[in-house]
Design a protein around this nucleic acid. Structure first.
Lengths: 334, 334
DNA sequence: CTGAAAGCGCTAACAA
DNA sequence: TTGTTAGCGCTTTCAG
């Protein structure tokens, strides 16, 4: 069984390879007879042109960008991944470049053959990044601000966002504020906690014992954390939860325990997922421009690939606090 | 500004192209001195190997599969897209092939250069499919059963699922059953309605006037439909909603109107999204193996690309009714 | 309208 | 350890 290439097709159809190429590329200047012969040969041999060869020969400059999705537990259940994929996908379409999706497993032996790489998050891919930087492959990291490495990154200002949440709650009169964190191995998770602590400290507000509960963005962790928080003798009057998914769960559990939100407990989330707006208790939360982050990252990578970018760019995108109905002033009667 | 190719690097480093190639590919048999020179030249020239040429020359058989995501309103807000991407991504990783993501815009001028194509759904891509079939490119269509076309497809048995929902509700004593449909331009939406109607007819149950409300999987459409249904003089005792997102919205609106679920109104959804289980009223719904569908589709496409598949395969995957707490027997007091 | 020749940029196989 | 020689499969150019 010999390889079927354009030459074989040409021979079978008894024309030149050029004629075959023309038929494939729908160049109109081919006689009906030859066209028929070529088509027949193609069908008969089951011929398929080789994409790499086509691209190489035609010198088509359509670059290929690789999007690395870290395969950590739950990323696929997250609003996050989808927004990133969406942003990258649409940007790639606009920029006329290919987007190669790569779910990074534990071991990522060889990097895919692409012109540039986009990391949906750094977590779990540190090693790969090193290798890639080493190879001088154009790279953009999303959702993780890299202080030291000379790598372009586009992230969200999680710290300031968390600070603003505290400011908001304090303005409503809360002082006993607790937090349920995200996964602290992910920078976004860590920064949200950081911002929270910093803001509390700045206001000389004590963070009581047990008021910081460690979650990992997963619902089970949120349940455990909420359980613990609500069982406290000195229950917080407000909780800042590091993701909407978890925050909704917190509210759910509070309701089940007949603790009314927001009357007896204020809750703030993070993400502004669609159901935050339509939940039973519409959730006050932080909206982050995920899809824009992805778009910007893709564009930046594209620049780099095109050689139009000189030095690494560090972008930090702002967030927005969306007030809904899960928070309340402490001095209101209830 | 001349092109920087491997030859230029070789000349600059005053070695042969092979030495450069070896350095790039980390072949250990290169003297330290040459390695240094090559690396310097690469850095200085900003050289990057051409992926197409690498693949062509090395004859690496790593095929590239294209995943087409129809860009219809809201697909990116859906659980659906993510599950499909996840399934395909993981399968591609296992099969050692590249996955090219393509968000199909209104006009998809040229098909991406890939070895095979996977459609996340047919809707909006009919034209593309025709072209692709015409080109004899290996193709698999997900979530849409194609009766006529000799194309491999992997779909969900939406019809039977809907029938079972009706059977279930009838078993609970319901007779006044309404439905809120999905987008009927999508086969999944149409089939669910179809199954519903068929099952009602089979039981000689009338579907009253206004008991079929047309939605499109979007929350606004669900709100309008629910509004209309709940305003009916003869209100249904149960509603089959074509997606969980919409069903949750229906429950939410019912609660707001002080209609208790499930006591006064039973609701069944479709999808089994994560929040169905954790919602205020845990949702009885239909679980569909989305990610498995994607996995199977990817594997099937891979077979085809490898030439190991002879004829089109038509796969219809079964669903499962997940009973939770949004339905109730009609004869129970309340 | 068609075909021959000359690469596209890289690497496999061999030879030195 | 290094370089030479052939291609990989296709398209471009340009002459027929």
């Amino acid at each position: 069984m010999k390889k079927v290439d354009i030459a074989l097709v040409a021979k079978t159809a008894r024309v030149s390879t050029m004629t075959v190429s023309r038929v494939i590329n729908r160049v109109p200047t081919v006689s009906a007879e030859n066209q028929r012969r070529v088509l027949t040969a193609i069908k008969q041999l089951g011929y398929r042109p080789n994409p790499s060869a086509q691209r190489l020969a035609s010198g088509k400059a359509k670059p290929t960008l690789g999007l690395i999705i870290p395969r950590f537990e739950g990323i696929f259940h997250s609003y996050y991944a989808l927004q990133v994929i969406k942003g990258c996908g649409i940007a790639a379409e606009r920029l006329q470049c290919d987007l190669l999706l790569h779910v990074a497993g534990g071991n990522t032996p060889l990097l895919p053959a692409v012109d540039g790489l986009l990391f949906a998050d750094l977590f779990g891919c540190e090693e790969l990044l090193d290798r890639v930087v080493d190879d001088r492959l154009p790279v953009v990291v999303l959702n993780h601000y890299l202080e030291e490495l000379p790598v372009t990154c586009v992230a969200i200002d999680n710290r300031t966002a968390a600070e603003r949440v505290v400011a908001y709650l304090v303005r409503l009169g809360h002082r006993d504020i607790a937090t349920i964190t995200g996964d602290l191995k992910v920078q976004a998770g860590l920064d949200r906690l950081d911002g929270f602590m910093k803001a509390m400290r700045a206001r000389h507000l004590a963070v009581r014992d047990g008021y910081v509960r460690f979650g990992n963005f997963g619902l089970p962790s949120a349940r455990a954390a909420t359980e613990a928080l609500l069982a406290l003798k000195e229950r917080p009057t407000a909780i800042f939860v590091a993701s909407d998914d978890m925050a909704l769960e917190t509210i759910h559990m509070a309701s089940a325990k007949r603790i009314r939100v927001p009357e007896e407990l204020s809750v703030v989330g993070f993400d502004d997922i669609p159901s935050a707006a339509t939940a039973h208790v519409p959730l006050t939360t932080v909206r982050q421009p995920l899809s824009e982050m992805a778009r910007r990252g893709t564009e930046l990578l594209f620049q780099q690939v095109k050689g139009k970018a000189r030095r690494p760019v560090k972008l930090v995108l702002p967030t927005e606090l969306v007030e809904r109905q899960s928070c309340r002033q402490t001095w209101l009667d209830h």
